[in-house]
Simulated assay, not measured.
Amino acid sequence: MVYQPSDDDRASVEGWFAQYDALAEQGAIEQLADLAVFPMNVVTDVPGGHAAVKQWSRREYVEAMKEAMGGGTAGLGLTSVRTPRFLSPNLVVVETDATMTIEGREEHMRYADLLVRTEEGWAFQTMIQGGWGHGWPPARRG
């Protein structure tokens, strides 16, 4: 059976992303980590290779985001269009098409997050985006 989210369900996910975006803009990496469940699954690919998968601790997430975000996303002209796909009342995969302007040129990216509903509200548990796997070992079956 396909779960049909209510307006409140959709609004709660939109509210979570509004909070996430505000923290990202400020570069508040520790507070972003507070919005996650660890260990966090990170799925990407190795350029010219295959998929790569890791589980990050909170410390590993914070280190990676400090490197990726620096002082935050403010000033990047970041716009995001998000499409939530509810699997159940407590699981939602959110696909994001984002555009940011860096030094006058537009960069486009697409990624997805798995959000899980916890007692404290939504939290992200899996991040999926191509191109992060430089130096990562390729995924192996079994």
Results as ranks from 00 to 15, higher is better:
2 V>K: 11
3 Y>V: 05
5 P>S: 06
5 P>L: 10
6 S>C: 06
6 S>N: 03
6 S>P: 04
7 D>M: 08
8 D>I: 13
8 D>A: 15
9 D>P: 09
10 R>H: 07
12 S>H: 04
13 V>W: 08
18 A>L: 07
18 A>E: 14
18 A>F: 00
19 Q>A: 12
21 D>T: 02
24 A>S: 14
27 G>Y: 09
27 G>R: 03
28 A>W: 03
30 E>S: 09
31 Q>M: 04
34 D>H: 04
34 D>T: 04
35 L>C: 03
37 V>R: 10
37 V>K: 05
37 V>N: 03
38 F>V: 05
38 F>G: 02
39 P>C: 08
40 M>K: 06
42 V>F: 12
43 V>P: 00
43 V>E: 06
45 D>E: 12
45 D>H: 08
50 H>S: 12
51 A>W: 00
52 A>K: 08
52 A>L: 05
54 K>E: 11
55 Q>T: 07
56 W>S: 03
57 S>K: 01
57 S>V: 06
58 R>Q: 09
59 R>C: 01
60 E>R: 09
61 Y>H: 11
62 V>P: 02
64 A>P: 00
65 M>G: 00
66 K>Q: 11
71 G>Q: 11
71 G>D: 10
71 G>V: 03
71 G>S: 12
74 A>H: 09
75 G>C: 07
75 G>N: 06
76 L>V: 00
78 L>G: 02
80 S>H: 02
80 S>Q: 15
81 V>W: 01
83 T>P: 00
84 P>M: 04
84 P>V: 03
85 R>Y: 07
86 F>L: 05
87 L>Q: 14
89 P>T: 03
89 P>V: 02
90 N>T: 14
91 L>H: 13
92 V>H: 08
93 V>C: 07
94 V>C: 07
95 E>P: 00
95 E>W: 05
95 E>N: 10
96 T>F: 01
96 T>N: 11
96 T>S: 14
96 T>P: 02
98 A>Y: 08
98 A>T: 09
99 T>R: 13
100 M>P: 01
100 M>R: 15
100 M>G: 00
101 T>Q: 15
105 R>A: 13
105 R>Q: 15
106 E>A: 15
106 E>V: 09
106 E>H: 08
107 E>D: 05
107 E>L: 15
108 H>M: 08
108 H>D: 11
108 H>E: 10
109 M>L: 15
109 M>W: 05
112 A>T: 09
113 D>T: 14
113 D>S: 06
116 V>W: 04
117 R>F: 06
118 T>I: 05
118 T>A: 12
118 T>E: 13
119 E>D: 15
120 E>Y: 06
121 G>M: 08
122 W>N: 09
122 W>K: 08
122 W>P: 10
124 F>K: 06
126 T>S: 08
126 T>A: 14
126 T>P: 00
126 T>M: 14
128 I>F: 14
128 I>E: 05
131 G>H: 10
131 G>W: 10
131 G>P: 10
132 W>M: 15
132 W>N: 09
132 W>C: 02
134 H>M: 12
135 G>T: 12
138 P>C: 08
138 P>A: 12
140 R>I: 10
141 R>H: 14
142 G>P: 03
